[in-house]
Design a protein around this nucleic acid. Structure first.
Length: 827
RNA sequence: GCCGGAGUGGCGAAAUUGGUAGACGCACGGGACUUAAAAUCCCGAGGGCCGAAAGGCCCGUGCCGGUUCGACUCCGGCCUCCGGCACCA
């Protein structure tokens, strides 16, 4: 009949045409109607994209193309999160230099992005492993150091004695090194931190100013920041000069504090151990807990364990002595690393107290019912409201009582009100080679000295040894390590820690606006025009860390007056993951390289073309939900594009035959056309391309039927077909560009305006009115739009289907929803 | 335990504010075209019951209850699954 659909030829042709015309490149210096579209940049360790990631980029491209057709000047850049552990592991395992490995993967992934027909402004491309990028990480670090936002402190790390390396949590399996199987030690190392906790309050408050962020992400960030109001209370302890500070969210239960518990890591523990007759036992316990992995120690159902330190503290409220314990469930990094134990009003304290026979003393009588009666009678003879013994009127629990309790604690001089956060400072040090060198120099005389700005960038050396004795390869590079102190000129050592890759990704959205700028990190003026990012698209897995750090760094830059911007991402869209059945486990799991259930788009592109892969990937389901991948549906997408192709060919032949007659302005096809424009426009606005494609499938079929039956003029058919091409373009760009041109229009369809609908024409003239009797559907009436209630009731009563249900009964009520439904309530 | 999300045909799913449940697609069945197959096109289809058929009735959106003329949608209680976080004081 007609020529066959040849996706390979069409797609290569348009990839070239778009590239040659540089359609995606924008001059960020020239003002326009800016729309900044950003995909989270890919991490080129996985060597190939899989369809799970593919959905991110395909959706992003569809949104981008849609914005272009809406007439916006739109920027859609792509960069590479190029540093990181996998590249370094590849070097150790296969001897490939991380740089070669990374650049190789970038090249391959770029090829895949191109094959999918994704339009990026490659003139803005950046890779975080280039000195032109990471020098600004270093510059930022120095500025933060000056402001006290970068600092050093000790923190425990997983140390593998065999590899002489620090391990990531995920490299520790059952307390052993994943690679060498050595038992992992916990070592304290002095490391660099960013003081993100200083910004906790602002980061929390800022969430309220993000109406276009998914609620679930904001909730996750709120929980992560974890603000708690309470009080810091001081307990005098015999044998210690300084009192022990505890943090509690329930100062109102102070009367019920029957023990004090310290984290084994608490600084006072060493002193207590020294002065204890039981020193060996305490130290042994401390060591044991410290060896437990974080995971074990914090896991649900973990065993609570403690040792009585053998000393006594004074409860400031009762003046009575209480025992001091050391307990594994007290965490050193939260609050003060010490708690007051109130077994009557805290589940954990209760369990601990029962286990070790510590008295339980309720403060609120109303809470007694919640307590174990057995233990209560045995251990807690005392009861009574605090109002009786304290200075405030205690209403059990509640924010009111707590607020009053704080005031009371302050008035009595027991302590002071305090807000603590669950959020911890951002550990940016990595004992790795493949990252941004931290620009610091250790001088025996001057201490830790910053690298002067004019010496930036501190280049990552290429010739390092990945083998031999293990450890950070940078430490063994004499050319790198040996340097001079910038202050005294004496011999000194360079810092060999490198930065966490989240530093790279926390400001890259600004750098796309001036990627080759050697004079400054960010361009204030361009940022003022382009920022915030209008639409950020990425996976839900970055909901907390990346997005929180990006918000943090943005505020830091604002405080440094480098940009006038509080929040970097105005609209955020997080796709759900693509899942797939894992043959090994039989379970449906998220698609990931480590689980080995990935599908590469390459083979599908080869078989069906990129347009089919795009249509199917978007058709699979709503993008915000997770979707299970199955290849069974791909042929449906392919068949649809074939039908579009055939339809266009026939419309072209019709036009060649000489068109006669103008397009009708109010025909069934025209009305459907407008209805389809409305549906697709609205669906695309909420990223629901799956229903948009469904609408386009119906539209395509209707045009085909009209063509077959001759019920519409050639002009109407041609107009409808071109509308179909426009609406389909964001999803299937190559095929639609091709037929746009073949039907005599000039390229690019990408630059053609998005069609508009006429609200009047988008509604059909006749509607189906559903008739219910007592809420059950009993018939349907075909009526004029806007049919009145009286005549609808009349029609219904005379309808053969409906009559038997109402005949001989009294209609007590009629609910009429015009153009939709008539419900007759009968008795 | 806490937070978030979900549960609808054989499967992926749709139903924009409470108003025709299952659009669109996959797989399946039947038919057309073909010497044949593939491809393509057309038709059918939630379950049960009645009927020769046309057609009709009942049930049906995880479970139980409620509000309403009317509930996939709202409210209360529960179950299951997925994801995230967690002895956070």
């Amino acid at each position: 009949m007609t020529e066959r659909y040849d996706p390979a030829a069409i797609e290569e042709k348009w990839r070239r045409r778009w590239e040659e015309a540089r359609v995606a490149e924008v001059d960020t210096a020239v003002p326009g109607d800016e729309f900044y579209m950003l995909n989270m940049y890919p991490y080129p360790s996985a060597s190939r994209l899989h369809v799970g990631h593919g959905r991110n980029y395909i959706l992003g491209d569809a949104l981008y193309r849609r914005e272009r057709m809406a007439g916006r000047k739109a920027l859609n850049p792509m960069g590479w999160d190029a540093f990181g552990l996998p590249a370094e592991n590849a070097a150790i395992q296969s001897g490939v230099h991380p740089r070669d490995y990374t650049l190789d993967n970038i090249a391959r992934m770029k090829e895949q992005l191109r094959a999918l027909g994704l339009l990026y402004d490659w003139s803005k491309e950046l890779a975080s492993c280039e000195p032109s990028y990471y020098r600004w990480n270093q510059w930022l670090f120095l500025r933060m150091w000056e402001r006290g936002l970068a600092y050093r402190k000790t923190a425990p790390v997983n140390w593998c004695p065999g590899c002489r390396t620090v391990l990531a949590n995920e490299q520790v399996v059952n307390g052993r090194c994943e690679r060498s199987d050595d038992v992992v030690e916990i070592r304290d190392l002095t490391q660099w931190f960013f003081r993100v906790t200083d910004y906790a309050e602002r980061l929390l408050a800022g969430l309220d100013a993000l109406p276009h962020w998914p609620e679930r992400v904001k909730t996750m960030q709120r929980n992560w920041i974890g603000r708690s109001e309470g009080a810091e209370i001081f307990f005098r302890v015999e044998a210690l000069v300084e009192p022990i500070a505890v943090f509690t969210t329930r100062p109102d239960t102070l009367f019920g504090a029957t023990f004090l518990a310290l984290a084994p890591e608490h600084p006072a523990v060493a002193t207590l151990a020294e002065r204890s007759p039981d020193r060996a036992a305490i130290e042994e316990f401390v060591e044991k807990v410290r060896r437990e992995s974080r995971l074990e120690r914090e896991s649900e159902g973990g065993v609570k364990e403690g040792r009585d330190a053998g000393f006594v503290a004074l409860n400031p409220a009762t003046g009575k002595p209480i025992p001091v314990w050391i307990a594994n469930f007290v965490l050193p990094e939260y609050g003060t690393g010490a708690i007051m134990g109130v077994p009557a009003h805290d589940q954990r304290d209760f369990e601990f107290a029962r286990q070790y026979g510590i008295p339980i003393r309720p403060v609120y009588r109303t809470d007694e019912a919640e307590l174990d009666p057995e233990t209560m009678t045995a251990a807690a003879p005392h009861g009574g409201y605090l109002s009786g013994s304290g200075d405030w009127n205690g209403t059990p629990s509640g924010p009111q009582a707590i607020r009053r309790a704080v005031e009371w604690v302050e008035a009595k001089g027991f302590g002071k009100g305090k807000i603590v956060y669950r959020l911890r400072d951002w550990l940016i040090s990595r004992q790795r080679y493949w990252g941004t060198p931290i620009p610091a120099i250790h001088c025996p005389g001057c201490g830790v000295v910053p690298v002067p700005d004019q010496d930036l960038p501190v280049l990552l050396p290429d010739d390092v040894d990945f083998f031999g004795a293990g450890g950070n390869p940078l430490e063994k590079s004499r050319a790198f390590v040996e340097t001079r102190c910038p202050r005294c000129g004496g011999e000194a050592r360079r810092e060999t820690d490198t930065m966490d890759t989240f530093v790279d990704s926390s400001w890259y959205y600004l750098r796309f606006l001036n990627p080759r700028d050697e004079k400054r990190m960010v361009d204030r003026e361009r940022a003022a025009r382009w920022m915030p990012v209008d639409q950020y698209v990425g996976g839900i897995e970055h909901a907390i860390l990346h997005l929180l750090y990006a918000r943090f760094v943005c505020r830091v830059l604002q405080d440094m007056d480098l940009v006038d911007l509080e929040e970097p991402f105005e609209r955020l869209f997080n796709q759900g993951m693509i899942t797939r059945v894992n043959v090994a486990t039989g379970r449906v799991e998220k698609m990931s390289k480590s689980r080995g259930n990935t599908v590469s788009p390459d083979e599908l592109i080869e078989r069906f073309g990129a347009d089919t892969v795009r249509v199917y990937t978007l058709f699979i389901g709503p993008p915000e939900k997770e979707s299970e991948w199955s290849e069974d549906g791909v042929s449906g997408a392919y068949r649809f594009l074939n039908r579009v192709h055939d339809l266009c060919a026939r419309v072209r032949d019709l036009e060649r035959g000489g068109s006669s007659g103008g397009a009708g302005s109010d025909t069934p096809l025209v009305r459907l056309e407008h209805r389809t424009i409305r549906r697709v426009t609205e669906d695309a606005a909420r990223f629901h391309f799956h229903t948009a494609v469904a609408a386009l499938m119906e539209f395509q079929r209707a045009i085909g039927e009209a063509l077959e039956s001759g019920s519409e003029t050639p002009a109407a058919l041609s107009g409808a077909t071109k509308t179909l091409l426009k609406l389909l373009h964001p999803v299937a760009p190559h095929l639609t560009e091709e037929w746009w041109e073949r039907l005599g229009e000039s390229p690019f369809l990408l630059e053609a305006p998005w069609p508009e609908f006429d609200a009047e024409l988008a509604t059909s003239a006749r509607v189906t009115l559903v008739v219910q009797v007592n809420g059950k559907v009993r018939g349907r009436l075909d009526v004029e739009r806007g049919e009145g209630e009286a005549s609808a009731v009349d029609l219904a009563q005379r309808d053969a289907q409906i009559r038997p249900w109402v005949e001989g009964r009294e209609i007590t009520r009629a609910v009429y929803v015009p153009d939709r439904l008539l419900n007759l309530v009968v008795r």
